Computed example of a mutant assay.
Amino acid sequence: MGLGRNGLVHVQLWSVAPRRRARVSPLGQRHVPVLGREAVSLLAPRPGGTYVDATFGAGGYSRMILEIEGTQVIGIDRDRTAVAGGFDLVDQSGGRLTLVESRFSELGEVCAAQGVSTIDGVVMDVGVSSMQLDQAGRGFSFRLDGPLDMRMGQDGPTAADVVARGPESLLADIIYLFGEERHSRAVARAIVAARREAPITTTRALADLVGRVVRSKPGDIHPATRTFQGLRIFVNEELDELQLALSAAERVLKPGGRLAVVSFHSLEDRIVKNFLAERGKSGGGSRHLPEVAQVAPSFDLLTRRPIVPGEDEIAGNPRARSAKLRGAARTGAPAHPNGALPSWPRLSDLARGG
């Protein structure tokens, strides 16, 4: 493990290709991500193509892409544990998989550092993974007691830092905008009052606190769900990361290259939907202003409506219930210029005291 260009941490393992057995994959069958087969089908990997698995996780997408003869995959994850967990797959791939510890918003820089200028496809699975949720020590789950961390990577403030230092108004905005919690002001007020008495450092302490403020009925989601979601998105700057990653994919995909994105809640899906809708239509001119140049669409939509899981997948994995898959194919038009990011709360606001 070492620093590559642009200060990115690169992990690359090579091995002799494993012996092949007729009609049996050397890569085995393991974790299949939500809508994984549908996403890879949209990606349509071809022999010899180069693909980016922008959210490597447990390696489900990479494994399926590598089933196609001669494919090369660059797997990216900001979670060092996920990268380390992929070493076996690197060995099994015979050198066709490269793993990089980085944010997926930096996929352009990651590809450049690997000497790759254009690619045939990008797949993304946005948000926290089941692997992270199931580890109490990561602090993502209100159902497991652990340190209030929530960081996907190894740097930056934890959720405990945000809860300890965030002004009440900033906490309310985070919980309302990113968690879509309508009781956000009451929750923020309760957090500020509680932290005067003692630091809030564990998931259970925060979940119990929120549970005393947000009442729920039998059958409702856990009362802390939205607060935890809001803090997690803020700590990891997930929505900024997604917007930047979509633009980065637009710049590195070759004409005909495909983008497939799986999201798990409305904020993520809205960003993906709006990005593809805006990139998938002409704009910039009108009959009243004919001198304004038209902007050619940079994507052709592959999904007019999102693909959603079937009943069997939801029964086997309740987390799949909210998943949506959208895809598009890159045209030959130049990438659109990046627009300004929305003015929502950011980690820099925490440093400034809100």
Rank of each mutant, 00 (worst) to 15 (best):
R204N: 12
G219M: 13
H336Q: 14
F142V: 10
S129Q: 04
H336M: 13
E109A: 14
Q154V: 07
S282W: 09
R352C: 07
A58F: 07
G108N: 03
L301H: 05
G139C: 05
K281L: 11
G127K: 00
R319S: 05
A54H: 03
S348Q: 15
A82E: 10
G28Y: 10
D53I: 08
G339R: 15
H265T: 07
L8H: 01
L171M: 08
E67P: 11
C111S: 10
V187W: 00
L99A: 08
G139K: 00
V123Y: 09
P47H: 02
Q243E: 15
E278S: 12
A194T: 04
A277T: 13
G156Y: 08
E278C: 00
R304F: 11
V90I: 12
L170Q: 02
T225M: 03
D155L: 09
T303K: 07
T50C: 11
G219F: 09
A248V: 05
R258I: 05
L170Y: 07
D91Y: 10
V235Q: 03
G256P: 06
L171D: 05
D349Q: 09
L27T: 05
A84C: 10
H288L: 14
R78G: 09
R232F: 11
A296L: 12
F234N: 07
L13G: 02
D240M: 02
L66T: 03
E237L: 06
L170G: 01
G179V: 09
L289T: 08
Q72N: 04
G353R: 04
G285D: 07
F299Q: 08
G166H: 06
F234G: 00
A39S: 09
P47M: 05
A328I: 04
E241W: 11
S105I: 00
G219Q: 07
D240Q: 11
P342T: 01
V187I: 09
V73T: 02
V210P: 03
L242H: 13
L253R: 00
P297L: 02
R251P: 01
D120L: 01
V192D: 10
Q243D: 14
G284M: 00
Q135G: 05
A329W: 00
R20Q: 15
I233Q: 03
T81P: 01
V187D: 01
R305C: 08
R287T: 12
E38M: 06
T98D: 13
T227Y: 04
A333L: 02
I314C: 08
A320Y: 00
R151E: 12
R305E: 15
R80H: 08
D91M: 06
R330H: 06
G179E: 12
F228N: 02
P18I: 00
S282H: 14
V192S: 02
E106K: 03
G146H: 13
G179K: 04
F178V: 05
R204T: 15
L35D: 08
H265Y: 10
R232E: 14
V210L: 12
L170A: 06
R165C: 13
P290E: 06
E180W: 07
I314T: 08
G48C: 13
I68Q: 11
P47A: 15
Q72L: 04
S130E: 12
V213W: 06
S141A: 15
F178D: 04
G211Q: 10
D269Y: 11
M64H: 02
F299D: 11
A320Q: 01
N317P: 09
